[in-house]
Design a protein around this nucleic acid. Structure first.
Lengths: 206, 206
DNA sequence: CGCCTGATCAAACGATCGTTTGAAGGATAG
DNA sequence: CTATCCTTCAAACGATCGTTTGATCAGGCG
């Protein structure tokens, strides 16, 4: 089908789409390998197990996503007067670009939202162990810009922000793309609306 | 185990907890019936199928939740000058009460977050068909209070609000209840923080 | 008592799950 | 050419899935 993509990548892309649609337990390796046009045994040959396939699926996207986020964050902090908007954009824009630019990026965002709902220890441990430092890093960056907010209130609001972002980026919501607008415009609109919303929410008077 | 609870209710409660933890496909009926201390066949006898058990699980909680929300909304609208805060509280407080007061309410909120991630048509159709009118009703109530906001922007922001609420109430977040504070105080604090955040976000200048 | 009805039970149904096996293919190096 | 290594393949493994079956139990009523 796609001879220029390797077996591993075909499996990862098919898994991304099917896990997004049916969940990790709900999509079987037989569905995945059938969609990827590879043999069933290829998953265990290349990835060892289904659990490890899931881990590699996240690693493929998150390594680059967190790198871009921290990169933009440092650029924002390097400015003489860093703004809350710039910091939030450093968090939102890389995710938006992943979701709209890259093939299957939208499916990955839905998979990511599923990961938040997983209380199984294996995946949670993997994600928080490898990527948990990013959220803390952003909290540190935001804190001096909201000195009047006590620590607990800030954490509350950051929780609200990440919840809203995850939800909004996963296409779960009611806002449908109008027929006349391109996918990219739709997502840029979403990012603009989201940053406005989040900045105002974080700045709410105590 | 709980002789004063019927078989149906024991199944519903056990399913709520296990579906919250492992997902709909990830938790088996054998796990559910074992946790509920009932026979495996009891699920198909009382509910017909696993899918219908899931539907009834939502119906048990959502009927009362939406009733309380609409009730509080009408009270807020009956005031001479309805405030955005009062309307949002009508949306938030019943959910928070469910999550903290009722046994298993917290698990139900996590199940609800999972439902948002389900793109399978069966559950989505059931939920939007039975409870989709509530969000529209709240949008109608909020709209005259934010006349400067165009319709699309309002829907965006309401999406963010429900996403933030869903994730915040599902214990996915970082905010844990401090040891010295009662559950009720924690919930009231969460509601206060959330309403402040949401009001400010909704009122963000265009 | 005998009869009926609804609930619960152990057991089994076929289907599907993740994983493993051993053989076959296909390219490269000596 | 043969030998080697990586990959792919069909087939099967035991386990577990949702669902169904038919027997058994308990209680109300004539």
């Amino acid at each position: 089908m796609h001879p220029h993509f390797s077996t591993k990548e075909r499996i990862l892309s098919a898994a991304e789409e099917l896990f997004a649609r049916h969940g990790f337990a709900g999509a079987s390796l037989r569905q995945v390998t059938a969609a990827a046009n590879v043999n069933l045994a290829a998953v265990n040959y290349h990835f060892g197990s289904k659990d490890n396939l899931i881990n590699e699926l996240f690693r493929r996207r998150l390594d680059e996503l967190t790198a871009r986020r921290l990169e933009m964050l440092e650029q924002a902090e390097a400015q003489p007067k860093p703004t809350l908007e710039a910091i939030l954009e450093a968090f939102v824009l890389p995710a938006l670009n992943l979701a709209s630019d890259q093939l299957g990026g939208s499916a990955f965002m839905r998979v990511l939202a599923r990961a938040y709902a997983e209380h199984d220890q294996t995946l949670r441990k993997f994600l928080s162990g490898n990527y948990g430092h990013v959220l803390k890093r952003f909290a540190q960056a935001i804190r001096p810009l909201l000195p009047e907010l006590d620590k607990e209130a800030l954490y509350w609001r950051l929780d609200f922000v990440s919840g809203a972002l995850t939800y909004a980026m996963s296409d779960f919501g009611a806002v449908k793309r109008p027929p006349g607008r391109s996918e990219e415009d739709h997502r840029r609109q979403a990012a603009r609306e989201f940053v406005r919303f989040a900045v105002a929410g974080l700045r709410a008077p105590e």
